[in-house]
Design a binder for these strands. Structure first.
Lengths: 168, 168
DNA sequence: TGGAACTTTCAAAAGTTATTGAAAGTTTAA
DNA sequence: TTAAACTTTCAATAACTTTTGAAAGTTCCA
């Protein structure tokens, strides 16, 4: 397989994966493209490679910057902005986990705390089913939370070594 | 907080969470409703609680059944179908992980295997950046895959006990 | 200061996904 | 076999999300 073809397939696959996990397809494709680019890329190059408008590149790159996955870089003697993506997959994984935890897990945990204050007869099977379900979810979500926190502090080695040793 | 209000907030929160993770909001809401219901519910009850059409209930319940999270149940002397959801959060977690792995992780791993056969000069920095990125992703994805496989075999206790002990 | 080179914004258009509801299909029991 | 009670399907449409592109904004430097 030629590099151009391989790149293309990779960018498509990353876009599809992203969209199945609630990430804008274009944002994921931009990220894919930057991840496999040894050099920072300009808006023009990104527009060109993905056949999308300047506005679209701008918005999605901004979002990637907001997620902490991409940075602007400036080349000396060049007014254009270039974009560079973190390439260490372990750092990317941690960063995505950190953001999703903050944006999605934490708000739900707050609601769970609220609703677990439900008042009512503990003998009522409806109340019991509700509180049982909520406390179960809180328990697992709280543990997922701790797991992510630990991951932030951990070395890549912990994941590729320690965790897997535990598994076998 | 009254049960009715708490239920409502929970259903909304679960729906929002689902939609941010690529799961149809209605499907997630139906799941939430069934998780906190001590008894199986009929299509009518679900339509009523969520203010949605019969067709919509039917499609999304079918999807939940397909994900292995909900079952049809029949009551004696009643032609109606009722729906019941698994309530053990550990089983739900494992089931969701299993399905997403099959539907989303595995297809990507197949593409990664394909594209890592890229031909070309290993000295070319573009080829190098590409193969480095792809092999990094394969490595982490393969490990996530193993982690999920292990989770399938594991007891809930492994997660709530062993894993967390390792963490501290 | 003016204007070229660039980036950002945002309202409208296109594209995608979810929902409805009516019609078709199925099952049950008399 | 019939018809009532229920479920399923699917084309139309509504709702939502993404993308465009032209206009506005910014920055740089002659």
């Amino acid at each position: 397989m030629k590099l151009a073809e391989a790149k293309n397939q990779f960018v498509q696959a990353w876009g599809t994966l992203g969209s199945k996990w609630g990430i804008n397809r274009t944002m994921a494709q931009l990220h894919a493209l930057l991840m496999i680019s040894p050099d920072p890329m300009s808006a023009e190059e990104l527009m060109e490679e993905l056949n999308i408008s300047r506005g679209n590149v701008n918005m999605n790159i901004r979002e990637l910057i907001d997620w902490g996955l991409v940075e602007k870089v400036h080349k000396p003697r060049d007014r254009k902005e270039y974009f560079w993506a973190e390439k260490d997959i372990w750092k990317i994984t941690k960063q995505v986990a950190r953001e999703r935890k903050k944006r999605e897990l934490e708000p739900v945990l707050r609601v769970l705390d609220q609703v677990s204050k439900v008042e009512g007869d503990k003998k009522d099977k409806n109340v019991k089913a509700f509180t049982d379900a909520v406390s179960g979810i809180k328990r697992i979500a709280g543990n997922a939370d701790k797991a992510i926190e630990t991951m932030f502090k951990a070395e890549e080695n912990w994941f590729f070594g320690g965790l897997l040793k535990l598994f076998k």
